[in-house]
Simulated assay, not measured.
Amino acid sequence: MTAWLLDPEVLHLNHGSFGATPAGVLDAQQAIRTRMEANPTRFFLEGEYQERLDDTRRAVAQFVGADPAGLVFVTNATTGVNSVLRSLEPSLSPGDEILVTDHEYNACANAAVVSASRAGAVVTTAAVPFPLGDRSEVVDAVLSAVTERTRILLIDAVTSATGLVMPVDELVARLEPDVRVLVDAAHAPGMIDFDVTALGASYVTANCHKWMCSAKGAAFLWVRPDRRDGMHHAVVSHGYNGGWPSEGGHLHAQFDWTGTHDPAAWLTIADALAAVEAMHPEGWPGVKAAIRELCLTGRDVLIEALGIEPPAPADMIGAIASVPLPPAGNAGSAIFDPLMAALRDRHRIEVPVFTWPVPPDRVLRISAHLYNRSDDYELLAKALTTELAD
């Protein structure tokens, strides 16, 4: 674990929530900050910031199969979702529908509710089963919820609570361009093979601080060429009227400068990509294969310990997976079940236990990255069965 700063006394099985950043990337981030603070005026106003940002943009675009002209940086995928929805509000009419699934990340579902309310539109929800047998159940659930008033589908590429790799490619093919598809790919890049251009969605936003392992506060939004006009950051700033001298056109001008902030997390994404790539002899393809194998192994261990059937097929699992637990006897309204605190405080295991979909039902979600080992999940299973027996 020497490449990471993770506490060796704690079993870290929650990469999916916040990621983890290699120590060398944090060193590069601090070097950027030191350079910036030596002369902030020079850094921001004399071209250095924009040049470094454009270099980073090209690196990220290559990694995710995007054209740099359509890729901009945001602090997290939630900001990307908000920016798209805010930009689309003027196109919505009373009674129009924004469609989400009941697996949608809570923050982004909230954004859909707020944007819909501003426009007099409504949010409709497709009920996707979990456990489920195959990806067709997702496709059928979403398509059956589409109506003639559906204007936008907001869908996760990989769901947060349930850890499902969603069939977004098939849904995009079935719905675009009549329904604009906004893909919240927070977990996808660096976990699964993911090419935003080939996907064909109108909008794709994703975090770089999760499976790409950048510093916290780095994400991107990609917009398809025919959707770029009228696209704005949720924070309106100088670029709205051309006041920021970006050479990348309208889209870059909207996002490259939204006020003074610390851009070091963005500017070291390429360092993170290189650092993780170097951790496996087969580079990024090897990384993705290794962490998926670890996750499937861990899921198998938990399934055996709980005496349950796999809640989803293996082809819908990347490097995070959830298993349903027996209903909670002390169910409340909190997002996180008390079992999560018990595993942390009594066993030194960091792993999320979500109340999902509603109390008393709950799921436990594991993550895998290169700092994990298969034995980690054996330790989790032992601790879990002990807590469930009490």
Rank of each mutant, 00 (worst) to 15 (best):
A188F: 03
R151P: 12
D193F: 12
V128E: 10
A145H: 11
S214W: 04
L132R: 05
A201K: 00
R174L: 08
D140M: 03
I192D: 13
S214T: 11
M212R: 13
N207S: 15
V128S: 09
N207H: 08
L154G: 04
M166N: 06
A215N: 06
T205Y: 00
A145P: 14
M212L: 15
I152W: 02
V179N: 01
V138S: 07
G200S: 04
Y203D: 00
G133K: 13
R149F: 02
D169H: 15
H187E: 09
S136Y: 06
P129G: 11
Y203M: 01
D178C: 01
A141P: 13
C213P: 10
L175A: 05
G133M: 12
A206N: 04
A198R: 11
L171C: 03
A186D: 12
V142G: 09
E148K: 02
V128D: 08
P177S: 05
T147V: 01
S202N: 01
D195H: 09
D169P: 11
P131A: 13
V204M: 00
R174K: 13
L143V: 07
M212P: 06
V179W: 04
T159F: 07
G190S: 14
V138M: 08
G163P: 09
L143I: 05
A127Q: 14
S202E: 01
A127G: 06
D178S: 10
V204Q: 00
R135F: 05
V183Q: 07
L175P: 10
V158P: 11
T159M: 07
R151A: 11
M166P: 04
V183W: 06
V165S: 07
E148L: 01
S160K: 15
R180G: 06
E176V: 15
G133W: 08
S136L: 05
S160Q: 15
D195K: 03
V142T: 10
E148D: 00
A215D: 05
V146R: 10
A206G: 05
V204G: 01
D156I: 10
A161L: 11
D169Y: 12
